[in-house]
């Protein structure tokens, strides 16, 4: 298991190599203030970091939500994160006035966290994970329809701004924003990491976890809180990158052949960072499109391989 993990670590670093190390070596020798250095530090480096952080946090967020809701199709956006962030940005783009002074990122942050807190507060009153799942979806739809209305009444120029956010990109992050982004990712990872016992037992049902001495409400709240922070901060900085959160957990189950979150969480971090890096290699194209273009074949391959073997045996 460990070897698989390390093998994957090298792979993950390998993906950085193509875009990063070539340049890095040429840069080590001459003076630091060359144009390449500028490109490297100002554009390339933040993009790599953004991809790693976004990939890791979306994957982990997706993984734990699939576990909590016991639903293989759960994704980080179930918590209404992208709807909330979208609403914030739509308000800035279309309404202008007081809202315009906010700027995109603070608006998205406010929107995302407002919606997420609403769902988190509700989660405390729901015994049943399934009704919570439905609640999340419904709130998401409700807010999306608001955004649709704003778009309908908005003008073309604002629409462009809104849509370009919706495409998703790792290039939006600047060097100075990295510590804040990374800080939020760590903040979001902590409650998840402290709930591994709950996550491992939750797949056999809530009462099962409870009978093994898990404080159900507390653990579930911690996991949802962590997952929402991870999803929200990524959506704010990189836009709604839907694919990674759903697909990478399945990729991880396939590769690591485990259901233990002690393995799955680091696995998801590695796979997620790798997929996001691979998708981010092509600059300029909407990330939303690239992640799915690259990711779908990979995930299908991993998922279908065991079944193909079975077919061949017949």
């Amino acid at each position: 298991m460990l070897t698989a993990l390390f093998a994957f670590l090298t792979l993950a670093l390998g993906a950085v190599e193509f875009s990063f190390w070539d340049l890095f070596y040429t840069l080590l020798n001459p003076g630091v203030k060359s144009p390449e250095a500028l490109i490297l530090w100002e554009f390339r480096f933040p993009r790599v970091i953004a991809a790693i952080l976004a990939g890791a946090s979306l994957s982990v967020s997706g993984l734990v939500l699939q576990t909590v809701f016991n639903n293989p199709l759960a994704s980080p956006f179930l918590l209404g994160v992208n709807s909330g962030a979208g609403l914030g940005i739509a308000l800035v783009c279309f309404l202008g006035g007081v809202f315009a002074s906010f700027g995109i990122i603070p608006a998205a942050t406010l929107g995302a966290f407002a919606v997420v807190s609403l769902i988190l507060i509700c989660s405390r009153y729901f015994e049943n994970s399934l009704s919570l799942l439905i609640l999340g979806l419904m709130i998401g739809y409700f807010i999306d329809s608001f955004v649709s209305l704003l778009i309908y009444f908005g003008d073309a120029e604002s629409l462009r701004g809104y849509i370009s956010w919706g495409f998703g990109s790792f290039s939006r992050l600047t060097l100075s924003e990295i510590p804040l982004f990374a800080g939020f990712v760590i903040l979001g990872m902590l409650p998840v990491l402290f709930s591994i016992r709950y996550l491992n037992t939750a797949r056999l049902g809530d009462s099962f976890a409870e009978s093994l001495g898990i404080d159900l409400k507390k653990s579930r709240f911690a996991v949802l809180l962590g997952a929402s922070i991870l999803a929200a901060v990524t959506t704010v900085y990189c836009g709604p990158v839907s694919f990674i959160g759903v697909a990478v957990p399945h990729l991880t189950y396939g590769i690591f052949k485990s259901s233990n979150h002690r393995v799955l969480i680091p696995g998801c971090i590695l796979c997620g960072a790798l997929i996001a890096l691979a998708a981010g290699l092509v600059p300029g194209i909407p990330l939303h499109a690239v992640t799915s273009l690259i990711g779908v074949p990979v995930v299908l391959w991993v998922l279908l391989r065991p079944q193909m073997k079975r077919w061949r045996k017949r």
């Binding site: 591994i196 056999l204 093994l212 233990n260």
Partner: peptide
Amino acid sequence: YEVVSLGRTPYADIWDS
């Protein structure tokens, strides 16, 4: 084995080792 191992949850540390 994994399912049986879950029975040890009440004795595990916070990392579920």
